[in-house]
Design a binder for these strands. Structure first.
Lengths: 141, 141
DNA sequence: CCTTGTCGTTTACACCTGTAAACATTACTT
DNA sequence: AAGTAATGTTTACAGGTGTAAACGACAAGG
């Protein structure tokens, strides 16, 4: 099924492919070798796993392959974000996003976009978010 | 070292302990058993790992233990958030936070707090965030 | 044609994670 | 005092992850 989970090491490979595709394993390795210090073999393993999972597509060019992404970076980031936010009480999601923004450097335009989003969300935002935790698993009670 | 990484299953246990402490393994199990369907044995294993990692402290009460957290939930959420955001181009952090907010339900007060934070951040926000990616790993170039 | 390099595939292996049974010890019950 | 229940500790085991060597097949060079 939707077993498209991408590990951190695999994501390094994907980022290269998202940036440039189609691309050969050699070229992926060239981009990553300084950053990661991986051996070619390591890159090959990760590519293999990504292909098997179906998040990389291959196109045969002669005897070799060229790789392209089968999922977008956004999709996968969204998935990872959900994995994170689903681990905390719905009531704490707001604070969590706050902390993230607080600790991040974002551009003026990003801030403006966020501002607009906030204006829009204000129209439908609840006074208080319902806590959906099991009793005993958070302090909202 | 600072090897305080908490896995999703371990976090389930921590959330119970953050909510109520000191607490016994029995009571942790009681809170989780409906949600997770874990056997007592599973809970015990996770508690053991958390204690070994030093994120749970124990206090002997007679022959038994009572557990308390040695780290705050905030700390651990911050760590997980960083793990996520560090996997994407600095330039895309803004959009990522945007997506998260877009997909989340947050309260009016949360939105107000975010608004204030944005006002504050606007004073020092760069026109454009510098991309720190390795060349070939993102499309900012 | 034989050698060598290249690239995909297989195999390797240790550590982490989810899930749990088995075991040891002690406290409680009869 | 002996059996039983509760609880911490050990052991188990499959699947994921990071890291990489070994293998096999083909292409290019000599």
């Amino acid at each position: 099924m939707n077993d498209k989970h991408i590990s951190p090491a695999e994501r390094e490979v994907m980022r290269v492919v998202w940036s440039t595709h189609p691309i050969t394993s050699k070229d992926i390795f060239e981009v990553l070798k300084d950053k990661t210090e991986w051996k070619m073999a390591t890159t090959k393993t990760l590519i293999g796993r990504l292909v098997k999972k179906g998040v990389l597509t291959t196109e045969a060019v002669g005897r070799r392959f060229e790789y392209s992404p089968a999922v977008t970076e956004e999709e996968t980031i969204k998935e990872s974000s959900n994995d994170l936010l689903n681990q905390i009480c719905t009531k704490k999601v707001g604070e969590t996003i706050y902390m993230m923004l607080e600790d991040s450097t974002v551009s003026v335009d990003d801030l403006k976009a966020l501002e607009r989003l906030i204006q829009k969300k204000k129209q439908t935002a609840p006074k208080v978010v319902a806590c959906d935790c099991v009793i005993g698993q958070c302090t909202c009670e």
